[in-house]
Each structure stands twice: as C-alpha cells, then as structure tokens.
Design a protein around this nucleic acid. Structure first.
Ligand SMILES: [Mn+2]
Ligand SMILES: [Mn+2]
Ligand SMILES: [Zn+2]
Ligand SMILES: [Zn+2]
Lengths: 174, 174
DNA sequence: TGTTAGTTATCATGACATGCAAATTAGTGC
DNA sequence: GCACTAATTTGCATGTCATGATAACTAACA
C-alpha cells in the first residue's frame, strides 16, 4: 500500500550471489548458518521474528541454534543488510527492506505490510521550540485487505494485550 | 511541541476530587494505594514506567508492593483513565493524557514529550487497496530542546540498544 | 462489626533477548 | 589432504519486564 505516490528508492539486501563477498567484506566466515539465514531473509517481506526464522531455518537445518539466529541477525543488521523493526507486538521484526518506509499492522491476522510514505507529509517538523527531530517512525493499525473481505477469522492472538503501535530500531550503517 | 497548530482536545484523567466516584463507578474500593497512584499520575506528563512509579510511591508509602503498582495501573487503564505507551525503550509507559497525541523521545536524556498532531496531515490513508486504517502511531526521535543547548551530558543509557521508534497500546474504554 | 475486596509476600511462569564458556568448524598455509 | 587456530556455533545461564497463583493479613464500606 502507498500513502502517496512518488519515487521510492528501495535499498534491499544484496543478492545471494554476492553473499560471499558481503560476508568477506566484514571478515565474517561463510558458514552454512549464515548462508541459510541470508537466503531466508533475502527478498522476504514477511517481517519475521527471530523465533519464526528459527522455525523455518530448523526445517532446512535441524539443530541450528536459536542463539545463532539472534547472533547472525545482529550481524546482518550491523552490516546494514537488514533493519530491526519493533512494532510493539512483543518480538523484534527483521526487515531486509532497508529503504525508508513505514508499516501497517493488521489487528486481525497480524500481518505486517510495508507502507511507503513518499511525497507524503514530511513529518520532520519540530525544529521549532528547539527540538531536533532526527527520525520519525509511523505504524498504521487496522485491517488488511484480506481480512477486510472474507469473514473475520481473527487469528493473531499470541500475547498482544490489545492494540499497539510501533517502534523502529535504527541500525548503524557503518 | 506542536507539529501543526489547531484545536487539540485533551482527555485527561478525572480530577482527584472525582476520584472516589471514579473508583466507585467500577466498584473498586478507594484504597490508599489507589489514591496514591491516581494522584501521582494525575497531571503527570513525564510518562513514567511502573518501576519509576514504584520508587516514587514507595517514598510516600513505604512497603507498597510493585505488584500493586502493576495491578492498579492495569485497572486505571481498563477504566480509561490512562493509556499504555510503548516507545520501545524496554518498559511500558503510563500516560494520563488520553487525548490523541504522539510522542517525541530524546535520544540524549531519554525524556518523552507529548506531540500534538492536529491539523497535520491526516495519515489515515490506505483505504485504497482495501486496507482500513484505524489508528496511527508516530514516534519522533531526536534531541530535546534542553539537550540541544547545554553540553550533551548524554544520560539515558540503561538498555536501549540503539534508536527505536514506538508503539501505543490501545485501551478498551468499555 | 462482619463480609469481602484488596494488599502484601513469595514464588513461579512466560516472552524475548543477551552473556558466557566449551565444543566445533571454516579457512588458511603446507 | 592435513593440521592449525581463530572465528562460530551451541547449550545453558542470566536478565528484564510483566503477569499468574497462593496464602495470610489488612482494611473498605455496607
Ligand atoms: Mn518493512
Ligand atoms: Mn503522552
Ligand atoms: Zn489481516
Ligand atoms: Zn533531552
């Protein structure tokens, strides 16, 4: 979904074929675990959690440690290959879409969609009164298109006590 | 700070004199602990955490239980007297300002300021493509006016791993 | 004053994330 | 291919924030 049309530059993870280079640049060894996670995240717009990645990864690589998932995700974030997004749903989300964008959270199914605010209102106000705004995070809540149609199956329980809003964790791009 | 001028209707907690009624309405007893917390929160724009309220409350009422703090804060939230705000700083914030507003987080001192987006861009877009936006949360990050002036003393360490953005937890107003 | 809600203390649980040390392995040189 | 060593992985412990559960005690209020 788009809030307003306009040019959107997406900075995505580098391609899997560049993988080796990506890791070597940072003097990181090309382990099977890193390859797997890199592949699982590349072009992944589902905004997975560490746990969900752990589940997925475990199928392809039984025995992989959850600790390694966290470890590697942190490294990839440090490398600027993905950003951490906290939408207030309990667990951090990992997003290979490095472009400046916001998120929509469906309160019914829990799905998370990218929202590109482009020519949209530049919220970077506030310089008045001595405040210096460096970053703005926006989270939209509502019902996604799918849930808006068919009967409301209302999954997405887990432990979200109600509605929440959001949070993005900035990543040092070195 | 304001992003854009305009009429701002603030829904605040009821006054302390209405306290008794407030509690009785919900068939809750008017205990000293509840009175204390109600008073500590009334007109409080510091967005305290449960722990910080516990510290403050303990001074006036040594022996008060942290469990009671959480308990009472939950009740007050259920009663619609305050809202829970998650700014991604680890702990939930409690905000007696029930009006629709957003927040500014100072990355230097950790202070949280209310931001009133009034006539500002109505971000409630997205109805196109079948998405129904019900709520929008915004968190501004930067340096507050105080930190912007004097030398940057940079407190606010604790356990924020970096920058984050935000989240608001909706409260059932019954 | 009695009934009963509320508080306290304690302990357990739960989700999410990180610290740590021992075991393993990738990548190097031979 | 083989040995070597530093980088990684793994398993477990720890930490934070928050809630559940129980029992014993306290006090609101009808
Ligand atoms: Mn995204
Ligand atoms: Mn506020
Ligand atoms: Zn949905
Ligand atoms: Zn500040």
């Amino acid at each position: 979904m788009q809030i307003s049309a306009g040019l959107v530059i997406l900075f995505e993870m580098r391609s899997p074929t560049e993988l080796a280079q990506v890791f070597r640049e940072k003097q990181l060894r090309l382990t099977p675990q890193r390859q797997l996670l890199f592949n699982l995240l590349h072009d992944n717009n589902s905004h997975p959690t560490a746990e969900s990645l752990f589940e997925t990864a475990s199928k392809q690589m039984p025995g992989i440690s959850l600790r390694t998932i966290y470890q590697t995700l942190g490294e990839l974030a440090d490398m600027g290959e993905l950003q951490l997004v906290d939408l207030g749903n309990g667990a951090m989300r990992f997003d290979p879409n490095m472009g400046e964008h916001q998120h929509f959270v469906c309160g019914s199914c829990g799905a998370i969609h990218d929202v590109d605010i482009t020519s949209a209102p530049k919220l970077r106000a506030g310089s008045a009164e001595g405040f210096a705004v460096e970053e703005v995070g926006v989270v939209f809540h509502g019902r996604c298109n799918r849930c808006n149609q068919g009967e409301q199956k209302s999954h997405h329980s887990k432990r979200s006590p109600g509605f929440q809003a959001k949070k993005i964790k900035q990543v040092k791009t070195n």
